[in-house]
């Protein structure tokens, strides 16, 4: 089980949380990979990839279902990434027995168009701050309209609903224009 504070930490931008996480696991994780035949610089890169994967899994509500500790889960992801890394270099990983679970680390478990994601990303980057903030609250923080109002960001539920519709419409239209253009 991963504690809910940790999951919320990964869903947040909290500098203190990430710094503390980095300091806590960096040494052990990098040593764990070095023992499996990966040089330090590459082990650090894999460590970074794993933190990013944890963040992604927090956003996708996958960390909530994890049945092992955070460290075990992190190291399981690390082992997978190390395996992929060495496979790319056509090298073999040094096998050391462990009880780490198998973890899915690919981004798209559902069918999704990478091109579409990239277009949406481009459009969001030029959207107004208000729209972007609303989309983040809704899609990443998982807040309901009621919760957004309760947090004090908006006057009432109607305002949120109206703004959300406007933002999504704007995004859809810009994508349609791009597609047709």
């Amino acid at each position: 089980m991963i504690e809910s504070e940790v999951i919320l930490g990964f869903r947040s931008e909290d500098e203190a949380f990430y710094k503390n996480f980095y300091k806590t696991y960096r040494k052990d994780f990098v040593n764990f990979l070095i023992k499996r035949g990966i040089p330090e610089t590459e082990s650090v890169e894999i460590f970074h990839e794993c933190i990013i994967i944890l963040k992604r899994k927090a956003y996708l509500y996958e960390l909530d279902k994890v049945q092992v500790s955070l460290k075990t889960y992190l190291f399981a992801i690390g082992k997978n990434k190390a395996f992929d890394h060495l496979k790319k270099l056509q090298k073999s990983i040094i096998y050391l027995s462990d009880n780490l679970p198998e973890v899915e680390t690919d981004f798209t478990s559902e069918e999704n168009d990478q091109e579409l994601i990239q277009h949406i990303k481009d459009k969001i980057s030029v959207m107004g701050k208000a729209c972007k903030k609303l989309l983040i609250s809704f899609y990443l923080e998982g807040l309901t309209i009621k919760e957004m109002v309760k947090r004090g960001d908006y006057e009432n539920e109607n305002t949120v609903s109206a703004q959300k519709s406007r933002c999504l419409k704007q995004l859809r239209e810009s994508l349609t224009i791009q597609k047709n253009g």
């Binding site: 931008e13 500098e15 990430y18 710094k19 980095y22 300091k23 960096r26 650090v44 970074h48 933190i51 990013i52 963040k55 992604r56 956003y59 996708l60 981004f107 798209t108 559902e110 069918e111 999704n112 168009d113 579409l116 994601i117 990239q118 949406i120 990303k121 969001i124 980057s125 989309l135 983040i136 899609y139 990443l140 999504l168 995004l171 859809r172 994508l175």
Partner: peptide, 29 residues
């Protein structure tokens, strides 16, 4: 797919921002 696309696009943006921060953390380390 449209909604999933928005979510994943936002995640990618956050991941890129975190990636730069991690490089800074490593330098500090």
């Amino acid at each position: 797919n449209f909604h999933l696309g928005i979510k994943k696009a936002l995640i990618l943006e956050k991941e890129e921002a975190l990636g730069s921060k991690l490089v800074g953390y490593e330098n500090a380390y």
